[in-house]
Amino acid sequence: MSATVNSAATPARQPRGYNFAFLDENTKREIRRKLLKAVAIPGYQVPFASPELPIARGWGTGGLQITMAIIGPEDVLKVIDQGCDGSVNAVNIRNLLVKTTGVDTTFDTTAASIVQTRHRVPEEPMRADQILVLQVPIPEPLRYVEASEAKTREMHGEMDYSRMWVYLYENIVQYGEISIGARYPSLVNRRYLMDPSPIPRWDVPKLSMSPTLHLFGAGREKRIYAVPPHTLVEPLEFEDFRFRVEEFSGRSCLRCGATDTYMNELFDRVSGQKLYACSDSGYCDKRRAAQERRAD
């Protein structure tokens, strides 16, 4: 056992006008209690208080509150928005967290202990000592088929997902394809249907049987849920109509040349061509740096 820790020998004590990680301790404790229940019941949406924050609801406050409740002075934080470390949502959330905690930040997925993300799972595989926090706009996968929260809660309780199956079936009949791209409904631990947040289909298989703990926070909708490590996450599919991820065959990233990543489509107005670039900017930069080192 290490030395006694509870006498104020802990770092990061300089006055900053806020409690460490902005939230007051009562709010953090509530989120922590709910996180433990979310982990104990994988995929089940636990209601939580979700108080006001200096960032508007719907801009990642669910993920932000989870990060604030779990983060400590020794953590190394990475924040991404659509895979990018530099886009506005990521920058604002990172700045707020750094200002109120003083933690170190990184763009390198492998160097982070907490990764907060909007709409992507990093390309590089994550480890058991890392936590992925996902921002969720709409936590209820059954909202496609049922508007009432009381009803969807009942449907989850009874594991009655028949209307979702019918919805997918009707999609196939009408369009020859399931029209849900991001937010693909997935069954967790063979029990709860979950909205994996608006990650592309590409990222859904990464949640399944991963060594990493995934925490999902929906601030506006006041829900927390989790996918623990080594937990089965199965996208809904039919025996004769399988789940497919996005197709990028024959395309490569214009920056790093990758052919095995999730890519954004760009349009070159001058040449009229469609171009592709990695969505995970940290990983793309890393590959480019490695290529430059080899070229030297």
Binding site: L36, I70, G72
Partner: peptide, 22 residues
């Protein structure tokens, strides 16, 4: 009064979360 409700709580919670997730 000596129990650090900010930092010790945070540290204990992370250990709890790790234990509950595994």
């Amino acid at each position: 009064p000596c129990f650090d409700r900010v930092f010790t709580s945070q540290r204990l919670f992370r250990l709890l979360l790790d234990a509950m997730a595994r």
